[in-house]
Design a protein around this nucleic acid. Structure first.
Lengths: 235, 235
DNA sequence: GAGTGGTCTAGACCACTGC
DNA sequence: CAGTGGTCTAGACCACTCG
C-alpha cells in the first residue's frame, strides 16, 4: 500500500507549510520518481487526496493544493459575492449567457410550468481568488419579470434586481444537495477534468406571496465549499 | 476516450433495466474483455460511475448498481429508522459501541467542554436493505443524562430516550455538510474500499432551553443520500 | 481452491500548456 | 518547442471472498 505513504508524505508537506494553498505540485513524472514509483500509482494517491479535498486538478495544468473551503449557507439569500466578502475571500463572477429560452422538460418541471414555456436562463461561473469554483444555471419564470434581461445581469445580483425593480424577495427556499461529478462544458468552465468530484446544490425559491420565482442549479468544485447552516425546530 | 464509451454502455444497461439496483456487475476481467480493453481503463470508467453515484463498490467483493438514494432532512429530528420507513425503505441499525469516555480534544471542542470531560460516545452502523450506508458517532454531554447507558441504546433511538426519560428535546440544530472519503475502520464498517467518496454531516444539537446536548458525526456512502430541506426566511 | 478485486510495474502516444 | 497531463496497454503478484 505504497499510495498511502505517498498520500501521507504529501499531506505532511501541506501541513508543514512546504506546500501552500493554490500552489502547484511538481510534475507527475517528477513526483513519481521522487517516491520511486510509477505515474499510475502516484495518480492513485493524488486522486485520493482529491477525493478528500486536499488537492485539486486543473485540466492539463497539473495538481494544486486546495485552499480553505468557503462556508455556504443555502438558507440565506446572501448572494455569492457578499458571502465571499464576508469571509475575506475575493469573489468574481463571469456571465456566460443570459437569454430567454423555451423551458426544457427538466426546467419546466422544476419551475412547475408546462413544457416550452418562456423562461430566462442565466449561466455564470464564479471565482474565488481567480479560481473557478462554481457553475450556476438559473431558470427564471419570465412572466414575473418582464424585460429582466434589459437590466444589467452581469453587474448586479439577480436577487438585487428582483427586489429593487420588481419588489420580489425570497421567502422560502427548498434545497437539495447531492454529490456527483463534473462533466463536459461545466467541467471545462471550471477548468476541471471530467469526473472531478462535485457538490450539486439545487434550490427552488419562493417569494413572499408563496409564488415560485426561480430555480438554481449550482455545481461546486467539492473542495471549495462546506455547507453550514442552522435550523430552528418548531415545537 | 474509450472510458466514456464504457461508462455510457454501463449506464445504458442500468437504465434499460438489464442491471437493477444492488445487482453485482460481472467481474472486472470479464468486463474488460467484453469492452476489449484492460482492467486499468475499465476501472477508470467504473470509478467515474462511482463518483456519479451510479455504482458502488464493496471492498474485494465487486461493483454493484446503486439503488435510489434516500432523502434526508437534517433539520428534522425524525430519526434514521422513521425516515427510512417513511420512504418505504428497510432500515436496520447495529450498535458498535456505547461507552463513557474522556472527551478527546476534538470532541471537547464540539461539545464546548474542557478537555477530558466525561462524555458518552456511541458508534453505530446503519443499513438500508442490508447495505451499510451510514457510520454515525454520537458524542453526548454526560452530565445531562445520568445513567444513559443503562437504557437500552441498541433498541431505542437516542432522541426517544432523551425525551422520554430526561424530558429533553432538540430545538435547534447546527449542521455542516462536507464531502470527503472513507478511510480505515469507517470504510471497513461500511464494507467500502478506502477512498470511497463520502458525504459527511456534522450536527450539533441544542435543547429547548438552548443548552448544547450532543453532537453527531455521520459518514454516508455518498450515493446513498440526498439532502433535502426547506428553509423559511424571516423578513 | 478457483477466481476476484487491490495494487503495482514499465512502458507508450497524443494533444495541449506555457515558455 | 519542450514538457506536461490524459489516456491506454499488457502484463504481474497477493490477499481475500466464496462456493
Amino acid at each position: 500500500m505504497q499510495y498511502l505513504k505517498i498520500k501521507d508524505a504529501i499531506v505532511e508537506q501541506i501541513e508543514d507549510g512546504m506546500l501552500t494553498a493554490r500552489q502547484k505540485l511538481p510534475a507527475e513524472r517528477k513526483l513519481a520518481e521522487a517516491f520511486d514509483t510509477t505515474r499510475v500509482t502516484l495518480r492513485e494517491a493524488l486522486s485520493m487526496l482529491e477525493a478528500e479535498g486536499r488537492v485539486y486538478r486543473e485540466d492539463r495544468r497539473g495538481w494544486f493544493v486546495s485552499p480553505e473551503p468557503m462556508s455556504y449557507d443555502p438558507t440565506q439569500t446572501l448572494n455569492f459575492t457578499n458571502m465571499a466578502l464576508a469571509q475575506q475571500r475575493q469573489p468574481r463572477t463571469e456571465l456566460l449567457a443570459a437569454k430567454q429560452v423555451l423551458a426544457s422538460k427538466h426546467a419546466a418541471k422544476k419551475l412547475e410550468l408546462p413544457p416550452f414555456s418562456d423562461i430566462y436562463r442565466v449561466d455564470r461561473v464564479r471565482y474565488l481568488e481567480e479560481r473557478p469554483v462554481l457553475y450556476v444555471t438559473n431558470f427564471i419564470r419570465a412572466e414575473l419579470f418582464p424585460d429582466l434581461l434589459k437590466r444589467d445581469c452581469s453587474r448586479n445580483s439577480l436577487t438585487d434586481i428582483y427586489r429593487e425593480h420588481y419588489g420580489v424577495e425570497y421567502q422560502r427556499i427548498r434545497y437539495r444537495i447531492t454529490t456527483s461529478s463534473l462533466q463536459g462544458e461545466i467541467a471545462q468552465a471550471l477548468r476541471a477534468t471530467a469526473g472531478t468530484p462535485a457538490m450539486v446544490v439545487e434550490r427552488i425559491n419562493y417569494s413572499q406571496t408563496g409564488e415560485l420565482i426561480d430555480c438554481d442549479i449550482e455545481y461546486w468544485r467539492h473542495d471549495a465549499i462546506t455547507i453550514d447552516s442552522i435550523a430552528e425546530l418548531s415545537a
